[in-house]
Amino acid sequence: MPNIASVLRDEIIRLTRKEFRQQMEPLRKQLLVQRKTITSLKSDIDKLQRGIKALAKGTRKSGQVESAPTTPTTRKRFSAGGLRKLREKFGLSREAFAPLLGASAQTVYNWEQQGTRPRPEIIEKIAILRGMSKRQVLAVLDQHSSPPTKSTKRTPTKNGQKPPKKTGKPAKKKAMSGKSSDAAATA
């Protein structure tokens, strides 16, 4: 007759394994799904890294920086001669044209001489100006020009001397060197 203790022990082991398999089966399925997801993500990362390397090599060869994905897909063209012709069409000097673009006159000169290239935001502004008439541009310039301020520059007098600064104190009169006012009147 079999030993009851060994039979009981074997039955406990069998039931424990059965219960363990029931608990582990959903976890195994979940683990397989996660492994597949991780594998697909790794392949996506590899593809993206290869794409970045290819773009980096492409930009080095062409010497141009690719535009960010948030910028519009239609790219505006820029030419130095076109900028100069646009400025001349409006009859504006570089100093008067520069505020329309938010740049300095020297920067506009550099763009016209092909020394530098404007940023994409400036190229957008140039494209907007291309669609405007001379009257519209002058109206924009009038709107942005500040009202004339009082000049602090002193104008010279008849004899070429600058007038004295106004300080709130009465001005001192200069005495003639070596002569009294009576002697000067008789002479």
Rank of each mutant, 00 (worst) to 15 (best):
D44K: 12
I45M: 05
K42A: 14
K42M: 15
S67E: 09
A68C: 06
T70I: 10
A54N: 12
R60E: 10
Q49R: 03
L55F: 13
I45T: 02
K42G: 13
T39S: 02
L55T: 14
L41C: 04
S43F: 02
I38S: 13
S62V: 02
L41M: 07
I38E: 12
T70H: 10
R60M: 08
S62Y: 02
T37S: 14
D46W: 00
L41Q: 03
L48I: 00
E66A: 09
G58E: 11
I52A: 04
S43G: 00
G51W: 06
S67H: 13
S43P: 00
S43M: 00
K47H: 12
S43L: 00
L41S: 05
E66T: 03
I45P: 00
S43E: 05
V65R: 04
K53S: 04
S62H: 06
I38T: 13
K61Q: 12
D44Y: 11
K47S: 11
D46L: 01
K47C: 11
G58R: 09
T59G: 05
L55A: 14
D44T: 11
K47P: 06
E66L: 07
I45C: 02
K53I: 00
A56F: 08
L41K: 07
I52F: 02
P69H: 01
K57L: 03
K47A: 11
K53A: 09
R60W: 08
I38V: 13
E66H: 05
K61W: 07
K47W: 07
Q64R: 01
T59W: 09
S43K: 04
K53M: 03
T39R: 01
K61Y: 05
I45L: 09
K42P: 12
E66D: 05
V65S: 07
P69G: 02
L55M: 15
R50L: 07
T37K: 15
T39G: 04
T70A: 11
A56R: 11
S40L: 15
K47Q: 13
G63H: 14
S67K: 12
G58I: 04
P69C: 03
L55V: 13
R50Y: 06
A54L: 10
T70Q: 08
I52R: 04
E66Q: 02
S62I: 01
V65E: 05
G51F: 12
K53P: 00
D46G: 00
T37L: 15
K42R: 14
T37D: 13
Q49K: 03
A68D: 09
V65I: 10
L55S: 13
K57H: 03
A54H: 15
